[in-house]
Design a protein around this nucleic acid. Structure first.
Length: 452
RNA sequence: GGCCCGGUGGCAGAGUGGUGAUGCAGAGGACUGCAAAUCCUUGCACGUCGGUUCGAUUCCGGCCCGGGCCUCCA
C-alpha cells in the first residue's frame, strides 16, 4: 500500500512520492523559545515524530529539520519582563524544550537549526525578493508585496478580498497594501539587531523558516508540517517568500497540519487561561502516557485534554509493560504489517494502537514458547509509534532504589503469612504497600509488584 | 461578514453504502484464601429533517448544535 498523506494544498489525501526516490526531506516549524511549551505544543512534536519514524521505516534516508526560532518580539518582551539577557532566556528555554521532547519519546530531528545562525541567509533572501520586485523597502522596513504574487492565499484557501474584509489587518502607513507583511524591521538600540542593506534591524516572523528550509533541505522539498494555526499567515507567507524568490510553484509538495489540543471543547490559549503546561502534565503522568493519549486521536482531529485521558493511557501502558515483562525478550522482529498499513493511511494512529492491543491479546494468550516472539513483534510495532521502548522493569518499578529491598522483604513476609494461612497479616501487608503506591500481583511464578 | 472543520454506544475514539474497530468504565463467568493481573462472554451507537438507493451511520441538500482561521498562536 502506498503512503497516503492529507495535503493542505489540495485538502485531500494524496499518494506520497518523494522528489528524490531515496531521500525524503521534511521541515517542521519548531518553537519560539521564550517560555516552556504547553500540552498543545506537544502535539506537532509527537505527530511529526511518528511521521519521521514511519518515513525512516519506508525510505533509506530521511532528513528531518525542526527549527528553533530564537529571535522574535515575544522573546524580547519576555526577556525584558524577566530582567535577563535574551541569550539567557533563549538558551534556557531551548534546553528545556529539548528535554520535554525527549520526555515525550521524540527522536532528535536530523537538524535543529537556530534562526539567529541564519541572519545572512535571511538577508540574502530578502535582497532576492527586492530584486524580483516582490518586496520593497520603506522607512527602514522591508515588506513583501502580496499583490505581486497572483496565487497568494492558495494554501490557506482565502482570497485577498477576504483578508481585507478581515478588519484585524494592521495597516501601517508604510504599507503599499494592507496585506503586505514585514520581512525585515528596524531594531531599537536595546533590541537584538544585525547590519543589513536597510540599516540595523531584525527579521520579521516568517522569513527564518524560508531561509532555514532552503539552506538545509533545498527547495522545493517534500513535506512541510506544523499546527493548523500556522496555515495562515505563517505558512502562506513562507510559501510566498520562497516561491517568489526562486520562481517556484510551491515550497513543499505536501503540507501537513495537526489539529488543536482542546480544553473542555475549546482551543487552549493563554487569553482564555486554559493552558496546561507540559511540565505540569509530566509531573502527574509519564511522558509516554501523554504520547499514547495524544496518538489515540487522529492527528487532524481536535483532541480534548483531560486527566481521565492521561490516566487511561497510563493504565494501558501498565498492561502492555506487564505483558512484556512476563514474556521476556525475543530477539529482533519486524513491525506488524497491519500497523504499518494503518500509519500509511495518513497516520491513522488510533487504528495502529488497535493493532497494538490485538498483539497484546495474542501475547497474553500465547503459550510459553511463542510469547517472546510476539513480545518482540509488539515492541517493534510500538517503535513506529515511539511507544513501548522502555525496559518493562523501569516502567513498572521505576529506577531501582533502596525501597525495592524493603518491598521484597515485605513480599517474603507476606508469602510466609500466606503459607501459614495468616491471611489477615498477608492482606495487611498488601494494604500497607498499596498505600505506598505498590500493587502486588500473585501469579503462578510467584508474586510480582509494580508502581500504581 | 468571509473561509474551513466536526456532531458515532456511559466516556474516549477509528471506520464503513449491506458481515456495525479499539480502549477505558460496567455486567456475568474462569482463575485466586481474598484481591490484582490474565482469559472467556456481554454491551447492538452513529445530531435532525428530507433526497438518491434494493439498502445510508457512511453519498447529496436543508436545519440545529459545537469548534477553528481571517496577520500573537502548535
Amino acid at each position: 500500500m502506498p503512503l497516503l498523506l492529507h495535503n493542505t494544498l489540495t485538502r485531500k489525501k494524496e499518494p506520497f512520492t518523494p522528489i528524490e526516490p531515496d531521500h525524503v526531506r521534511v521541515y517542521v516549524c519548531g518553537p519560539t523559545v521564550y517560555q516552556r511549551i504547553h500540552i498543545g505544543n506537544a502535539r506537532p512534536l509527537i505527530v511529526f515524530d511518528v511521521l519521521f519514524r514511519l518515513l525512516r521505516h519506508l525510505y533509506p534516508n530521511v532528513t528531518y529539520v525542526r527549527n528553533i526560532t530564537d529571535v522574535d518580539d515575544k522573546i524580547i518582551a519576555q526577556a525584558k519582563e524577566n530582567g535577563e539577557p535574551i541569550e539567557a532566556l533563549t538558551g534556557r528555554t531551548t534546553t528545556a524544550f529539548q528535554a520535554d521532547a525527549l520526555a515525550l519519546g521524540c527522536l532528535a530531528p536530523t537538524l535543529e537549526p537556530k534562526a539567529t545562525h541564519h541572519i545572512l541567509e535571511m538577508v540574502a533572501l530578502i535582497e532576492q525578493l527586492v530584486e524580483t520586485g516582490n518586496a520593497y523597502a520603506a522607512e527602514g522596513h522591508v515588506l513583501f508585496h502580496t499583490p505581486s504574487m497572483p496565487r497568494y492565499g492558495s494554501l490557506s484557501g482565502r482570497s485577498r478580498d477576504d483578508q481585507v474584509a478581515g478588519a484585524r489587518v494592521e495597516v501601517a502607513p508604510y504599507k503599499r497594501d494592507a496585506a503586505d507583511f514585514v520581512l525585515w524591521k528596524p531594531a531599537a538600540d536595546d533590541e537584538p539587531g544585525w547590519d543589513s542593506p536597510w540599516g540595523r534591524g531584525r527579521p520579521g516572523w516568517h522569513i527564518e523558516c524560508s531561509a532555514m528550509a532552503e539552506k538545509h533541505l533545498g527547495v522545493p522539498f517534500d513535506i512541510h508540517g506544523g499546527g493548523q494555526d500556522l496555515i495562515f499567515p505563517h505558512h502562506e507567507n513562507e510559501m510566498a517568500q520562497t516561491c517568489c524568490a526562486h520562481g517556484l510553484a510551491t515550497m513543499a509538495n505536501f503540507w501537513l497540519h495537526n489539529g488543536f489540543v482542546d480544553m473542555r471543547g475549546q482551543k487552549m490559549s493563554k487569553s482564555l487561561g486554559n493552558v496546561l503546561r507540559l511540565d505540569e502534565a509530566l509531573a502527574a503522568v509519564p511522558g509516554e502516557a501523554i504520547r499514547l493519549w495524544m496518538l489515540g486521536a487522529h492527528y487532524r482531529a481536535p483532541i480534548d485534554c483531560s486527566e481521565q485521558g492521561f490516566e487511561e493511557a497510563k493504565t494501558q501502558l501498565d498492561r502492555f509493560y506487564g505483558a512484556l515483562e512476563r514474556a521476556g525478550e525475543g530477539g529482533k522482529a519486524d513491525p506488524e504489517p497491519a500497523l504499518v498499513e494503518a500509519l500509511e493511511d495518513d497516520l491513522n494512529t488510533p487504528k495502529a494502537i488497535a493493532v497494538l492491543h490485538d498483539l497484546l491479546g495474542q501475547l497474553n494468550r500465547a503459550k510459553h514458547g511463542e510469547a517472546p516472539t510476539i513480545a518482540s513483534r509488539l515492541k517493534a510495532s510500538g517503535a513506529l509509534l515511539g511507544l513501548l521502548q522502555a525496559a518493562p522493569t523501569t516502567w513498572l518499578h521505576g529506577t531501582a532504589g533502596a525501597a525495592d529491598q524493603k518491598i521484597e522483604a515485605l513480599i517474603e513476609e507476606r508469602l510466609a503469612a500466606r503459607k501459614r494461612k495468616d491471611f489477615a497479616r498477608a492482606d495487611a501487608i498488601r494494604d500497607q504497600l498499596a498505600a505506598e503506591g505498590i500493587i502486588l500481583e500473585d501469579g503462578p511464578g510467584g508474586t510480582t509488584w509494580r508502581k500504581s
